[in-house]
Computed example of a mutant assay.
Amino acid sequence: MMQLSDTTDSTTLGYWLNWRVYLCVFSVLLCMVLASFTIWKRESSRNLTFDKRENQQDRDLCGDEAWKPCLKSIHPACLLAFRVVSFASLLASLIAKLHVTRGVTFYYYTQWTFTLVTIYFGCGSMLSVYGCYMYRKSTETTFNEDVTRIDEEQGPYLPLLYQDATNVSRTEPLANTNINIQKNQHAPIWSYIFHILFQISAGAVMLTDCVYWLIIFPFLTLRDYDLNFMTVNMHTVNFVLLFGDAALNCLRIPWSGMSFFVLWTGVYVIVQWIIHACVSIWWPYPFLDLSSPYAPLWYLLLALMHIPCYGFFMLVLEMKHYFLSKWFPSSYQC
């Protein structure tokens, strides 16, 4: 755990009443306002096109992308197994970290992101269980339809008793379809929430690991940071597991989804400001210290890092979809 010595008292008015703080606060709030406006515009556009069913890009409203693998040859149970194992691993690491630090771990953006990814895999596991159930029901429906078609071809030569069973089998596909439609009316809501978690996690994981391995580890570790297995685990396993899930699932992330990521980081920064305004305590990351003359530059650099971090993850996903559609055209289903 990194605890840098803090010589400036952040609870005094002199700490907050200066141009550096004003500029940093303005930049963070401006980013959050723009992100909120982007989300509002996106949702307004989605509501207008939802009833028409003409916007093919709003695939997260279909309800099955949250649990459907990217290839038909991959059974949904494989994605379920991966998510359950990932959730168990992340949860075990998080509990161990909480036990060691006694809750202080949530002072860091890393643990916010790690907890978010844990929640993501927990929700994904539940949605995959639902998806396996729906996949099984659809398989049974397809089988019943095949039996019905055979019965219709052989109908005049079948006994009356079997003909009654045939009539039942003819109505089962319709009944199952109605059940599926009713259930799928609720599925898009959870799929949409899950998609938001995916978009936030995609950027937050990249930002967390990039800041740690490119800034904190090279420049701060040698002086006052104790590198251990748990620290390395917190900054690697979330990245590996999230990319593994992205390789299997059907989800995409649009550029507008970066707005959720920006809001996530903005909320963390504001929470840090509130804490330091009330308590004189060390900053979890030295570049967040508003007393530094380079604070506006650090905040600007941190804001700009959101673009390549989110964009890299988005690029990897688009490359995955492109190559899978070329290599497995008959099995690709994203």
Rank of each mutant, 00 (worst) to 15 (best):
F198M: 11
F37R: 11
C250N: 10
P293N: 13
V269R: 03
V262S: 07
F323W: 14
H235T: 09
I270G: 02
A77Y: 08
V85M: 15
K137P: 00
M258W: 00
T115W: 09
R102A: 13
L242A: 06
S93A: 13
R252E: 13
M206L: 08
T110R: 09
F313D: 00
D245E: 13
N180Y: 01
F312V: 12
V269H: 01
K72L: 14
A277W: 10
L222M: 12
L161G: 05
A247H: 05
G244Q: 09
Y135Q: 05
A77R: 13
V205A: 06
D245Y: 14
D245P: 05
E65V: 15
E54L: 15
S73D: 11
D6E: 14
S291N: 14
T171V: 04
G131M: 01
E140H: 06
L30G: 00
I179G: 00
P188M: 03
A246K: 04
R170E: 07
L214A: 12
S191F: 00
L98Q: 14
V100S: 15
I275W: 04
C70D: 13
D58C: 06
W112A: 11
S138M: 05
C250E: 12
F37D: 07
L197V: 06
T7I: 09
A247F: 15
V271M: 10
F87M: 15
M230T: 13
T12H: 02
N178V: 01
A66Q: 15
I281S: 10
Y225F: 14
M1G: 07
W190K: 01
F50G: 06
